[in-house]
Structure formats: structure tokens, C-alpha cells
């Protein structure tokens, strides 16, 4: 498949990633993608990093 990986930044939220196989976290650990789309935390506060767990909604900005 030659479909490109598409990444979209959500307003005040995570990055939606389509088409990736592996996401590396800030320690360099590999996380396999098992869903058609994943949300990667960009606020730094998720407790399930690298994935967004909606914590960004409750942190004051």
C-alpha cells in the first residue's frame, strides 16, 4: 500500500494519525498501532502515553 500516513492536529487536543504502524514515545519505546486511527497525546499529560486519554480536556490552558 502506498497510502501516505496522514497526521492531523486537533484543536487543543491530540494528533490524529492514520496509516502508521508504529509510534515511538519520548523514551524511544515502540508502540504498535492496532486501530485504524490513533490519537497521539500532544499535551504531555496523558497517563497512557503515547496515546491521548482525554486528560487535555481537564488541564487549564
Amino acid at each position: 500500500m502506498n497510502e501516505p500516513v496522514v497526521v492531523r492536529q486537533c484543536v487543543d487536543g491530540p494528533m490524529l494519525v492514520r496509516g502508521a504502524d508504529v509510534v515511538l514515545d519520548d523514551q524511544g519505546n515502540e508502540h504498535r498501532v492496532t486501530r485504524p486511527v490513533v490519537a497521539v497525546c500532544t499535551c504531555g499529560k496523558s497517563q497512557r502515553k503515547p496515546w491521548c486519554d482525554a486528560t487535555h480536556k481537564v488541564i487549564p490552558r
Partner: peptide
């Protein structure tokens, strides 16, 4: 659902 719906909300809304 913590993880899945953090994705799904954006997929459904947008």
C-alpha cells in the same frame, strides 16, 4: 474506552 473514545470523538465530530 478511555483510549478508543479519545480517538473516536474526533472521528465522529469532524
Amino acid at each position: 474506552h478511555v483510549e478508543a473514545d479519545a480517538v473516536h470523538e474526533h472521528v465522529v465530530a469532524h
